[in-house]
Nucleic acid binder design. Structure first.
Lengths: 117, 117
DNA sequence: AAAGTTGGTTTCTTCAGGGAAACTAGTTTC
DNA sequence: GAAACTAGTTTCCCTGAAGAAACCAACTTT
């Protein structure tokens, strides 16, 4: 009984810690939405700004920097006529897709439920 | 090509909207962690407070009220000697488990990665 | 040379999310 | 009667997340 409790407790502690870790990386109002946008493919700064409705340039810039630091996003400067910058998910960034996808499908479920309440 | 683009765009829009909807329900620093704790089974107020490390009683109380309003959590008052209150996930609340689980397992992955970097 | 494009940075400000601690209230035990 | 346990509520405060708008700098087009 006691051993079982200890196992439960340590599994539970690790679970909580893991959730906190994830939330730290995805902290703030915008990161998940930016990643959700990039999950559809690489995008330029202004494309992202149009895609992530409501975000200000300052926020987008800041969040992209954090995502890059965490190794989730790659930033590539292209030597085009007016300089363009491309952002794309790294392989590691793509590993967040299951979370994003679950959130997206739950959101659709929820919208149906609220509609038919 | 144009039709394809329109399909892409509307699928993409719905995706973004769904993510926003989910984030609205799970807004704030604590809801996911509370749900993550309740996913292990029903808990009393003080149990939750001990379980969700760092949360203040005010926050816990406020967040639980919101979760109850959204139909994710059930609150039951028990007529015990000193009154006790039990919180548990509703069936609908359990539908969030895939999200929580994905976050937990990504968090563990991330911790491994950071450790071995 | 003025205006528009790109991708930002800087500054200034506001507001709400959240923290600490005290307080309530019913019951029970010391 | 004081202290302790239950589950909160209330108040007061403060920081940091975020918004708005202006500004910057290289290059192109008109």
């Amino acid at each position: 009984m006691e051993e079982e409790e200890n196992l439960d407790q340590s599994a539970c502690t690790a679970h909580h810690r893991a959730i906190r870790d994830t939330m730290d990386v995805l902290s703030g109002k915008w990161k998940i939405r930016i990643i959700g946008s990039l999950a559809f493919g690489k995008k330029r700064f202004m494309e992202l700004k149009g895609n992530v409705e409501g975000i200000a340039a300052k926020m987008l810039s800041k969040e992209l920097q954090e995502l890059e630091l965490h190794g989730l996003v790659n930033r590539t400067v292209l030597a085009t006529k007016p300089i363009t910058v491309e952002y794309e998910l790294t392989e590691y960034g793509h590993s967040l897709k299951p979370i994003i996808d679950e959130m997206a499908s739950w959101g659709m479920l929820h919208r149906e439920r609220v509609k038919n309440q």
